[in-house]
Nucleic acid binder design. Structure first.
Length: 423
DNA sequence: TCTGGGGTCCTAGGACCC
DNA sequence: TCTGGGGTCCTAGGACCC
């Protein structure tokens, strides 16, 4: 029988910040999204003050000042490195791991003896080695492991580990009856409204729905969810290392801009980042999507949102080729006089380098250019990102995002190593 | 004044073919 | 006068996740 464990770090971003700033250990702390826009993580103390998730910070700045809440910009270099350390510990303790998000992993624990005891040991190791506190939920399907994780985090009695397989089904049903259907993994805002209108209010209500009827009314995704709630595994582990099918890079501008040159620079910057990721997974792309938009939250601005797809003549991972395609796309969708708020690119139709057979009629990247790209990636890896870059990235700096309260990159930059004083 | 970014999967509908 | 229907492929967009 399949057994899945979901390991989820508590208040991940907030905890990463506190690990390297012990003076903040008991203080309420929030972490902001890119561009210092909204709140994306809260420490336990900040949650206790009632600060909501995903709220724009400007609506709560006054409250935070009044209550001494520490406000940090997000530092994805630090969180990404802490996440990699967490993942490596999990991979040491379990051979099949899916890194589901920056702070969550699914473990395939089928065949493990005494799984609950082992989960407590995983939790202990994560705390000892990287100072992260985790909740672990265990169940026969991913959806049930998610639900069990929710119990592990919300009911302190279980000490951070809840194994659905340890308990009789009537007890699990009683737990499911306590939680709203919106807590189910895969049930978002829209589905919740529709389900509630159909009289399906709790997790248990959804579990008791017929999968066929659900498929007819809501589609195959929710059907799988219902089956999973009933213990029938429909979603398998996707192991670490599978290449991405789309690679995106997008950002809001620090301040809105009408300047086409600023947007061009930003687009080149995004292409550069996406292409680096593309080469890192040894792939090539055949489509470049370009996106620009104005600020949808400002009623006084003309709403404008366009994407366009630029197909390449042949699949490529050459930054220069991807850039010129993206700039051609931008030219199609840029309208003068609008106040642009965000732009981005997405690479699509991605395939492994080896799958592309070069011949007379289907050309591929010039090997010399590929060596140049590899050299650039290597230099940037060793000496810091953007040490070697395309000149087009320097045309204008006016699009860059705000990040006023970012902490140092303690674990990835020699110059930012934490300093310890001994008395 | 100030509202993130990066993914996945599914579906509806258009274009095209025979 | 009367002008099909079914299949495939592709894309845009929606819903979800963290």
């Amino acid at each position: 029988m399949p057994v899945y464990a979901l390991v989820d770090a508590n208040n991940f971003y907030a905890t990463c910040e506190k690990i390297f700033a012990p003076e903040l250990m008991d203080k309420p702390l929030v972490v902001l999204s890119n561009n210092d826009g909204c709140i994306v993580a809260r420490s336990a103390e900040a949650k206790a003050l009632g600060i909501p998730m995903a709220a724009p910070i400007h609506q709560h700045r006054h409250f935070c000042q009044q209550h001494g809440v520490v406000i940090k910009s997000s530092n994805y270099t630090l969180y990404g490195d802490m996440s990699a350390r967490m993942l490596s510990i999990l991979q040491d303790m379990c051979p099949r791991v899916e890194s589901y998000s920056i702070d969550e992993s699914f473990l395939d624990m089928a065949g493990f003896p005494d799984i609950t005891k082992y989960a407590y040991e995983i939790r202990r190791q994560l705390r000892r080695q990287v100072k992260l506190s985790c909740g672990i939920g265990i169940g026969p399907t991913k959806t049930l492991a998610k639900f069990a994780n929710h119990i592990a985090k919300n009911q302190l009695y279980w000490g951070g580990v809840f194994n659905a397989l340890d308990h009789p089904s009537d007890m699990l049903d009683a737990l499911m009856a306590q939680y709203p259907v919106s807590e189910v993994w895969g049930v978002g805002r829209r589905l919740t409204v529709r389900l509630n209108a159909d009289g399906i209010n709790t997790v248990l209500d959804l579990k008791h729905c017929g999968p066929i009827a659900i498929r007819k009314r809501y589609g195959i995704v929710l059907e799988k969810t219902v089956r999973e709630l009933n213990g029938e595994s429909c979603l398998a582990i996707a192991e670490v290392g599978e290449p991405r099918q789309q690679i995106m890079a997008s950002r809001s501008f620090g301040t809105v801009t009408q300047d086409v040159d600023a947007i061009k620079t930003a687009i080149c910057h995004h292409v550069s980042r996406a292409a680096e990721k593309l080469r890192q997974q040894h792939s090539v792309a055949q489509h470049v999507y370009v996106m620009v938009r104005t600020n949808p939250f400002r009623d006084q601005d003309v709403p404008y949102r366009r994407t366009t797809l630029v197909p390449l003549a042949y699949p490529s991972a050459d930054t220069a080729i991807l850039m010129s395609a993206a700039l051609a796309g931008l030219q199609q969708i840029f309208r003068p006089g609008l106040k642009y708020h965000k732009c981005g690119v997405m690479l699509g139709q991605i395939a492994p380098v080896g799958n592309v057979q070069p011949d007379l009629f289907s050309p591929s990247d010039d090997p010399k250019r590929l060596r140049l790209m590899a050299l650039m990636d290597n230099i940037n890896r060793v000496h810091g990102s953007n040490m070697l870059r395309f000149a087009s990235l320097d045309l204008s700096n006016s699009w860059r995002m705000r990040a006023g309260g970012r902490s140092p990159c303690y674990t990835t930059d020699w110059r930012a190593l934490p300093v310890v004083f001994c008395r």
